[in-house]
Design a protein around this nucleic acid. Structure first.
Ligand code: MN
Ligand code: MN
Ligand code: ZN
Ligand code: ZN
Lengths: 148, 148
DNA sequence: TTAAAAATTTTGAATCAATCAAAATTATTT
DNA sequence: AAATAATTTTGATTGATTCAAAATTTTTAA
């Protein structure tokens, strides 16, 4: 977020509300977190905040393009403020940790071999594997690993 | 499925059951369908079949590698019998239709720019766009398109 | 600065895919 | 054919997300 949250909201004709500002702050500090996690952080700052408001705003912000949503198989939707750069993600099969990885900006990643006549606007890539921590903790088969 | 379903199941030490065979047949005839759809097809052939058996078997078959699961954002899990070739998918934002596309077998698609020390075993790619039918039906903004 | 209008939030209920659990049935092994 | 193991059925349950309506807040306009 180079641009201040307040401006960002104004640019998209969104009301400036306490929950919304807290949400953007929470997301910026905790990339790839789900609605429950964001709610925890926001609720910690604004006791009256509801989970529904988190869902409402996440949807609104995603529609506006202010927030990006990803949904790795087996997890709730994850959100981040890093948008517009078409970066990709690496997900750990063991602990479900998510990391960013930049896009090789090469044709193969952006163009399918057979487009079936589609007008394509996005190539979403998720790399699956096992993270360094989980490689060490051999006892964490299939289970989440606290260290990750 | 080059190999007969019966053999396939035997090879993986799975009991040969009516539901299982019907499921594999249904999946082969309807690639990229969800559990509900598969249940419909199976149930049509075996009146006594339960949805739970479909879920049980889909999980079992995915674990065995006989069936592949994908889960495009906003849809229930989809299943297919085409496995082991690391092919990718194109999904229509308008009608949710799913199509196969072969993998460019090039390094960029298989290797992230920064692996963060992960041991990576799969690169899952989903291309998002609008299919030919939906490009024509301009009135189908955001809604599913019966033609697709 | 205020009243009216519009947008957001809260609250509580509802959906829906998917899973859990236990008893009943079926398949496989002996 | 009996014993054992695996699968299926049935019914309840979970959990993320959405829906809906009343209450509150923000924005707009007077
Ligand atoms: Mn990211
Ligand atoms: Mn496919
Ligand atoms: Zn890990
Ligand atoms: Zn379409």
């Amino acid at each position: 977020m180079k641009i201040a949250p307040e401006e960002l909201l104004r640019q998209h004709n969104l009301s400036l509300t306490a929950v919304r500002l807290a949400l953007l702050e929470a997301l910026h500090a905790n990339p790839h977190s789900d609605a429950a996690r964001i709610f925890d952080v926001v609720h910690n700052k604004i006791a009256a905040a509801s989970k529904q408001a988190i869902y409402n705003n996440l949807n609104t912000l995603v529609e506006c393009g202010i927030v990006r949503e990803i949904k790795p198989k087996g997890q709730a939707s994850l959100y981040e403020t890093r948008t517009g750069d078409n970066h990709h993600h690496i997900v750990c099969r063991s602990c479900a940790g998510v990391f960013d990885t930049d896009c090789h900006d090469c044709a193969p990643c952006l163009t399918p071999k057979d487009s079936h006549g589609f007008v394509i606007d996005e190539a979403e890539v998720i790399f699956w594997g096992v993270c360094p921590s989980c490689q060490n903790n051999h006892n964490s088969k299939g289970k989440n690993n606290a260290e990750c």
